[in-house]
Amino acid sequence: MGRLKNQLISKLFTKFPFLVERWVKKAAPWKAQDIPWAPLTKPVKDCKIALATTAGVHLKSQKPFNMKDPNGDPTFREIPRDTPKGQFIITHDYYDHKDADKDINIVFPIDRLKELKERGEIADIAEINFGFMGHIDGGHIYTLINGTAQEVAEKLRAQGVDAVLLTPG
């Protein structure tokens, strides 16, 4: 029943944008203080770029994100650069992803990135990119910032990634 309710709300959000604004106003604020900063030290055309999304993207062969926990799921899935088109799936009940189901690029622009690489506008794409499911609340927020997000940062560094593009759902 919980999943159906969340899926219904997400459809209403797409249909009536004013509902999103009302929900955003009511959401508890999360105030950050300092701003981390790592300047880009070379031109984008010389960079190896990675994607990280919270749109719930993963492979059909991987375990879906947990949709039963009301606080969400702070885990991530590794998405290889050369994943065949038909292998993507989205598990995320908190936004309406029927358009992204048709074309994954609107939340995970892997094909657009490959075109940039072909044209020499970027040097390379990370072999492994990362999928999260962005509904993360309660104690899972701390698992994310102290655990899984740092784990992903380490994996990005190990691949020699120069810059990361992050996209929401």
Partner: peptide
């Protein structure tokens, strides 16, 4: 919430010395 999670993940990656844009 997705937009909030994006920012939280982004901040951790940047702290590792990798520039990010969302």
């Amino acid at each position: 919430m997705c937009n909030r999670s994006v920012g939280l993940i982004q901040r951790e990656i940047e702290k590792y010395g990798i520039p990010t844009i969302s």
